[in-house]
Design a protein around this nucleic acid. Structure first.
Length: 532
RNA sequence: GGCCCCAUCGUCUAGUGGCCUAGGACAUCAGCUUCUCAAGCUGGGAACACGGGUUCGAUUCCCGUUGGGGCCA
């Protein structure tokens, strides 16, 4: 840890925040910003705050706010203050404090640090075009900046709709970015900026300054897309004589084409990943390494270890491409770490939602979102396979899941991989049954042989160990007989394909055990008829 | 267009002037294992954008070029 980081300009408590607008589902980039803020707060025994920036009533929706809350909770990025949990520096929704903004706006107006501007969109547009044509930065020329009180009143009385502009003092605005170091802007290039549509409708750059002050935010850690907002906010805070927070700008998450990650790159909301069956621990581990690394070769990090090793001065400056394959790798890794009980509980909703199984009446509890515990202790839940109406125990489901644990990249993969267990009839491709160029006749011979052997097994002896012990020598002998080599494939491959219908699957013994003797024989029979 | 930021394998990155014959991870390729697919193990290929300086010595420092990105409307 670099001690530099602890030199906090504003001594006292570390208070950080994320401030998403509830105009869409929680974006992966916002989640990553939240994570870094959270880690920074935890690292410094500080407070992580959630603020909802819902000043745009058109686009802000309660369901999006809910999604933000739910997704953060799912990721275990917990805020100590926010719209749902409250806090002494609230309200935490911008829409609930419009009078506060109005107060500061009025103050600026009274001190003539801001003024009403009546220029029309058309005027402004024409001006901008002109400025750009002569190679200048487009900025407001200050046409209305000299309007007298009477003129303003007249225009107001006439019903003209003004905006409120902030007088930008031309100067070099400097700040020391926690991640990037010194950054300097020439505010003369900005022109007077619009800070509100009117007293009741503050705009982003203004509202942020007020909120961050009111919430006593010590460090503003946000995406790089905000760097050019920073000087504006510094100037506004200065005009209001407010203390400046520290700023840190995170590199952006990029899509494959290296532009800012957005919907056109695919799934970007946290809830989409959740639904597809990505684990929160994988998401967190993955997001943390998008622009940060511990400087060691360790790659696996859970939240507690991240908190321990996180340091803001190890954050990268350049944007990071979202590497989906790496997310999958991490997700598969965390899936493999799960206990079979836990993993089964995680998979059950997928089976149920897909209509493969249904719950029997004796376990009506909805899953506990905290523990993901689907059942109360001591309860023996049972399920029914929808297609066959057979009862299937949790134990059996656990066996199924455990067979495929190593093959799951995401939870939803379980459906495609295991659906053959839940189907009455499965589709077979005749040629798939042939191992190394077997003929139809040889396949039938193999199946007859299997039939003979398997039907003789006593029901109580039907388990994986016995099947393997019995079938292995038989398979070798069969290979020897038809091809002169002890290749078990001539028996085991047709068996496996007969049971699963698939080119790739878990092994035939464990599958046969789960399917049971009756179904195993039935599937062999079906395959035989297919060939004839 | 203006301003700001950035630049090591395909991707995420280690590297803070000599430990660099540039390390790790994902991906990829080959092999082992094997009835298949996974998982696992072993091994291979793969990068310092370019040009100038500074220096005994630059991936590392400075300048420029190029490239990429962000913001502004």
């Amino acid at each position: 840890m670099n001690p530099e980081e602890f030199k906090l300009k504003t001594p006292g408590e570390v208070r950080v925040r994320i401030a998403p607008a509830p105009t869409g589902f929680l974006h992966i980039g916002t989640a990553r910003t939240a994570l870094f803020n959270y880690l920074f707060a935890k690292k410094h025994q500080g407070v992580f705050i959630l603020r909802i920036e819902d000043t745009d009533p058109e686009r802000s929706k309660p369901e999006f706010e809910k999604d933000i809350l739910d997704s953060l909770k799912w990721l275990h990025i917990e805020h100590a203050e926010g719209p749902d949990v409250g806090g002494e520096h609230g309200p935490y929704r911008q829409s609930e404090k419009l009078d506060v903004y109005a107060k500061y706006l009025q103050k600026l107006l009274d001190q003539d640090k801001a003024y009403y501007c009546f220029c029309t969109k058309e005027e402004l547009e024409a001006q901008k075009q002109y400025q750009m044509s002569i190679g200048q930065a487009p900025r407001y020329t200050g046409k209305c900046s000299g309007l007298s009180k009477q003129e303003v009143k007249q225009k107001l009385d006439k019903g003209e709709k003004p905006v409120i502009r902030f007088r930008v003092t031309p100067k070099k605005v400097k700040f020391n970015d926690m991640i990037r170091g010194k950054i300097e802007f020439d505010s003369a290039l900005m022109g007077d900026i619009v800070i509100a549509k009117n007293l009741k409708e503050p705009l982003y750059n203004f509202a942020v300054v007020i909120d961050d002050f009111e919430m006593k935010i010590s460090h503003v850690i946000r995406g790089e897309d905000h760097v050019s907002n920073t000087p504006k906010q510094i100037l506004i805070a200065e005009a209001l004589d407010l203390p400046q927070p520290e700023f840190g700008h995170l590199p952006l998450i990029l899509g494959r084409d290296r532009s800012k990650l957005s919907k056109r790159h695919g799934a970007v909301s946290v809830n989409q990943y959740k639904e597809e069956g990505y684990l929160p621990e994988a998401m967190v581990n993955f997001m943390a390494f998008l622009g940060w690394n511990p400087g060691t070769e360790r790659e696996i990090y859970t939240m507690p270890s991240l908190i321990k090793d996180f340091s803001i001065d190890r954050i990268q400056k350049g944007g990071a491409v979202f590497n989906h394959q790496r997310l999958e790798f991490l997700n598969a890794f965390y899936i493999r770490q799960k206990s079979i009980e836990k993993l089964t509980e995680l998979c059950l909703p997928y089976f149920i939602k897909a209509g493969l199984i249904e719950k029997l009446k004796n376990n009506p509890h909805p899953p506990d979102p905290e523990t993901l515990q689907l059942f109360k202790d001591g309860e023996k839940p049972e399920f029914r396979i929808k297609q066959t109406q057979e009862v299937i125990s949790l134990e059996t489901l656990k066996k199924i899941v455990s067979l495929y644990q190593k093959r799951l990249k995401k939870l939803s993969d379980i459906l495609e991989l295991t659906s053959f267990f839940f189907k009455d009839k499965i589709k077979h491709e005749k040629d798939l049954l042939k191992w190394k160029g077997m003929t139809d006749k040889e396949v039938v011979m193999s199946i007859d042989n299997l039939n003979k052997v398997l039907s003789r097994i006593k029901p109580e002896d039907w388990n994986r160990e016995n099947l393997e012990e019995l079938l292995t020598p038989i398979a070798e002998k069969f290979g020897q007989k038809i091809k002169g080599v002890g290749d078990r494939g001539y028996t085991l491959w047709p068996l496996r394909v007969a049971l699963t219908g698939k080119q790739a699957s878990a092994g035939p013994f464990e599958i046969a055990e789960i399917l049971g003797q009756e179904k195993t024989l039935k599937r062999l029979q079906e395959v035989k008829e297919l060939i004839k």
